[in-house]
C-alpha cells in the first residue's frame, strides 16, 4: 500500500501564555491516505486551527510525530519546511490572501518564483491554471477588480500551480455567500476526483458534507472520525 499523505502520531502543541503553558493539542493520532477529502470540524478553541498550522508546516509540534508523504517533518529546519510548503502543499485561506498590488497572473505564478522557475514557463503555467479555474480572461487584472468567489478561485489556481500532493483549505467559504460557496466546493470535489488529497477546516455542516470524511475536534482531542453518510454525498 502507498505511503499515507498524512500520518500523525501523538501530536501535542502547547503555547506559552501569561497564565502558563496552554495545551492546544493533547495527543492527536490521524492518518489521511492519498485521494481522501477530509473535513476538520469543531468549535473555536477546539484546536483545529492549531492542527491545520501543524499540517501546513507553518508551525512545529511540541511533541509527537508528523509524517508528510513519508517524511518526518516534526523537527525540520525552517528553510526545508518552506520548500515543503512550496512543493507539496497548496494553501487556500478564508481571506483569499492574494497580493493586492500584483495582477492575477503574477499572483498565481508566485509559488513558482520561490521554486526558481524561469519567467516564460512561469507565465505559461500561471495562464493554464487560471484557465483551469475559468479566469484566464482576467490574467492582467488586479485582485480588487474581481468578486470574492473569483478571488478564491485564483487562490485555488495558485495552490495548484506546483502540482501539490495536498491542498489545505482553511475555512475557504467563510467569506462567501452560499451560492458561491457551492461553486467553490464543487471545484474542490472536482480536484479530489482528479486524485488530489484535500483537507479542509470548516464549522459549517453543509460545507463539511461535501467531504468524504469528517473529523471532529473538541478540547484538543479528536472526538469523532466518520465517513460522510452516502445520502449527504449524493445530494451534492
Amino acid at each position: 500500500m502507498a505511503e499515507a499523505v498524512i500520518r500523525v502520531v501523538g501530536l501535542c502543541k502547547s503555547y506559552e501564555t501569561a497564565a502558563g503553558l496552554f495545551p492546544a493539542l493533547k495527543g492527536v493520532d490521524l492518518m489521511i491516505e492519498r485521494g481522501e477529502f477530509v473535513a476538520i470540524m469543531g468549535p473555536s478553541g477546539s484546536g483545529k486551527s492549531t492542527f491545520m498550522n501543524l499540517l501546513g508546516c507553518l508551525d512545529t509540534p511540541t511533541m509527537g510525530e508528523y509524517h508528510l508523504v513519508g517524511r518526518n517533518v516534526a523537527h525540520m529546519p525552517g528553510d526545508e519546511l518552506a520548500i515543503l510548503r512550496n512543493r507539496t502543499i497548496g494553501f487556500v485561506f478564508q481571506g483569499f490572501n492574494l497580493l493586492p498590488r500584483s495582477n492575477l497572473e503574477d499572483n498565481v505564478a508566485l509559488p513558482l518564483v520561490y521554486a526558481h522557475v524561469e519567467r516564460e514557463p512561469r507565465r505559461e503555467k500561471a495562464r493554464q491554471m487560471l484557465a483551469r479555474v475559468g479566469l484566464d480572461a482576467y490574467a492582467k487584472s488586479l485582485p480588487a477588480r474581481i468578486s470574492g468567489g473569483q478571488q478564491q478561485r485564483v487562490a485555488i489556481a495558485r495552490a495548484l500551480i506546483n502540482s501539490p500532493r495536498l491542498i489545505l483549505a482553511d475555512e475557504p467559504t467563510g467569506n462567501l455567500d452560499s451560492h458561491t460557496s457551492e461553486e467553490i466546493m464543487a471545484l474542490f470535489g472536482q480536484l479530489n476526483d482528479e486524485g488530489i488529497t484535500i483537507v479542509l477546516v470548516t464549522h459549517e455542516a453543509d460545507i463539511a458534507a461535501h467531504a468524504k470524511r469528517q473529523v471532529r475536534f473538541l478540547d484538543g482531542h479528536i472526538v469523532s472520525d466518520v465517513a460522510t453518510p452516502a445520502r449527504a454525498l449524493a445530494s451534492c
Binding site: G56, L58, N86, F91, P111
Partner: peptide, 9 residues
C-alpha cells in the same frame, strides 16, 4: 502569504 507559499527567510 509569501512564507506560506514557500518563501524562505
Amino acid at each position: 502569504i509569501r512564507m506560506a507559499i514557500g518563501a524562505r527567510q
